[in-house]
């Protein structure tokens, strides 16, 4: 089956991102396809490479990056939500005159059309949030 995943909450404050990660991993392990993971609302905060949790805690951002590297998973961060919350890649930094970038490896910034497309293409869109 083809799944799409939406993550609506940031890391650590809410369990949504953890649950989405474990669900995504389980979907892939069961041999299904994940068409896309889309990060919206505060979910875009899962994509900052500047996250530094204590060493004995899970690193939620790195975990997503690693999953993407291993499986060519498409991790998409909503551009409008990212701009509001300061998640920046090279293109956005140039466009908006910012002096730094913080997008973690394996993520890309794109538009809300990617979420609608995921809803159209996938057999199931599963939303993780509050």
């Amino acid at each position: 089956m083809k799944f799409a995943i939406q993550v609506n909450e940031g890391p650590y404050t809410h369990q949504a991102s953890d649950s989405a990660y474990h669900f995504t991993k389980a979907v892939l392990a069961a041999g299904h396809e994940v068409f896309r993971v889309f990060f919206y609302h505060d979910g875009v905060n899962n994509a900052t490479r500047l996250t530094t949790p204590p060493q004995d805690d899970r690193n939620i951002v790195n975990r997503w990056s690693k999953l993407a590297q291993g499986s060519e998973l498409d991790l998409v961060v909503c551009v409008a939500a990212a701009q509001r919350r300061g998640i920046v890649d090279d293109g956005e930094a140039k466009r908006n005159g910012k002096d730094a970038t913080n997008l973690a490896p394996g993520f890309r910034i794109s538009g809300l059309g990617q979420l609608i497309e995921a809803g159209i293409q996938a057999d199931r869109l599963v939303v993780f949030g509050d």
């Binding site: 919206y40 409008a80 538009g111 809300l112 059309g113 979420l115 609608i116 497309e117 809803g119 159209i120």
Partner: peptide, 11 residues
């Protein structure tokens, strides 16, 4: 914002 994009995709 998503509703408007969904409509633009003629869903």
């Amino acid at each position: 914002e998503v509703v408007l994009i969904g409509a633009a995709f003629e869903q």
